[in-house]
Design a protein around this nucleic acid. Structure first.
Length: 209
DNA sequence: TGAGCGATTAAA
DNA sequence: TTAATCGCTCAT
């Protein structure tokens, strides 16, 4: 088990953190029989009142309050009434930034995840899509605002960072309500070649060689 | 107090 | 292409 990511890691600009979170690990219930470890494979950056795709676009509300808080905390909200979406708050306190965790690859705890998702025992845990990540980690709104630095429930670990040539970028998914600039903004990041990525056809190499 | 909708997913 | 499903936001 690698070391925990620090608050300084999360305190940087949201696009930087979103890209750097690829290859990092999310750990649920560390050290218990229910421990689950996921490797982050796809992320999206949302940030500040100037981003018309962000939940913070209209300022502070009861729901998005954690996004305005200190970095390294979770922001969890319900989408379409049934999906628990996990975000990790970034930037200095007050910026209103967070990274949406869109997809992960199972590292360990497959039995736990399969039981939660009621999947066939022999089927691979396909965690492509933010709703599936929330389900695999058994998250609910009580996690919104929780610190990643407290012992236990939800932690973020160093894992193995991804080199630039293996990073894909593209527009964010499901933000048609935003203005043209924010709809087109390449704020989605994914690991090249990973099976655990959504909408792969709209992703391109971040850096050509 | 309530209408409208959403950073989605699975099934038809 | 569409149903599922309900908390949040904002307009009465």
């Amino acid at each position: 088990m690698s070391a925990r990511l620090t608050q300084a890691f999360f305190a940087r600009e949201v696009e930087i953190v979103a890209r750097d979170l690829l290859g990092r690990h999310l750990v649920r219930d560390r050290g218990t029989p229910d421990e689950v470890v996921l490797r982050i494979t796809e992320t999206e950056a949302y940030g500040g009142p100037e981003d018309t795709a962000s939940h913070c676009r209209a300022g502070r509300t009861a729901r998005n309050a954690p996004m305005w808080g200190p970095p390294g905390h979770a922001y969890v909200y319900v989408c379409y009434g049934l999906h628990q979406m996990l975000n990790l708050v970034t930037g200095e306190e007050g910026r209103g930034q967070a990274v949406l965790i869109r997809s992960c690859e199972l590292v360990s705890g497959g039995e736990i995840v399969r039981a939660r998702r009621r999947m066939d025992r022999d089927a691979p845990a396909l965690l492509a899509g933010p709703g599936k990540v929330g389900a695999a980690l058994a998250l609910d709104r009580s996690f919104s605002g929780a610190s990643l630095f407290d012992e236990g429930a939800l932690e973020a670990h160093e894992g193995t960072p991804i080199v630039d040539r293996d990073v894909l970028v593209g527009p964010r998914v499901g933000v048609d309500y935003a203005n043209a600039r924010d709809r087109a903004a390449k704020k989605r990041f994914a690991i090249a070649g990973s099976r655990w990525v959504t909408h792969a056809n709209s992703l391109r190499r971040a850096r050509s060689r």
